[in-house]
């Protein structure tokens, strides 16, 4: 169900994005960092679904707060002439990898247990 929602969302979003007007180059840095923040939030959401502690409010607020905060940090960095967005990037991408590891482990475990179950049931049938 969730996987279908993700795929459908991505397809619809891509269609909208292809037909939407492009933004000025000056603001493209902000959009880029917001995209990375949103990506991190989505990965975090999937992880929490797997861990079964998913909270809708936390997810939605996290999605928007992360994006807005990262944009604000990038803007501040531009004012101060320091690449603060790099720090945000490191955090987001680092967390994405952690979440990806959790998701991967979950599915690998699921797969393994299915195989062992099959083997067990096969053995039982033989007996």
């Amino acid at each position: 169900m969730i996987i279908i929602a993700i795929i459908l969302g991505c397809v619809i979003g891509a269609i909208i994005g292809v037909n939407a007007p492009i933004i000025p180059y000056t603001y493209s840095t902000f959009l880029a960092i917001a995209v990375v923040a949103a990506l991190d939030s989505v990965f975090g959401g999937i992880t929490s679904v797997i861990k079964k502690n998913f909270d809708l409010t936390i997810f939605i607020t996290g999605f928007f707060c992360n994006s807005i905060l990262s944009i604000a940090l990038t803007y501040l960095g531009q004012r101060l002439n320091i690449d603060i967005y790099l720090a945000a990037l490191v955090v987001f991408v680092g967390r994405m990898f952690t979440n990806l590891t959790i998701i991967r482990r979950y599915y690998v475990d699921l797969w393994k247990s299915k195989i062992t179950q099959k083997v067990k049931s096969g053995k039982k049938a033989e007996e």
Binding site: I6, C10, G13, G17
Partner: peptide, 9 residues
């Protein structure tokens, strides 16, 4: 969220 995300990308 995925709509927003892929739209942004």
């Amino acid at each position: 969220m995925c709509i927003l995300l892929s739209c942004g990308i």
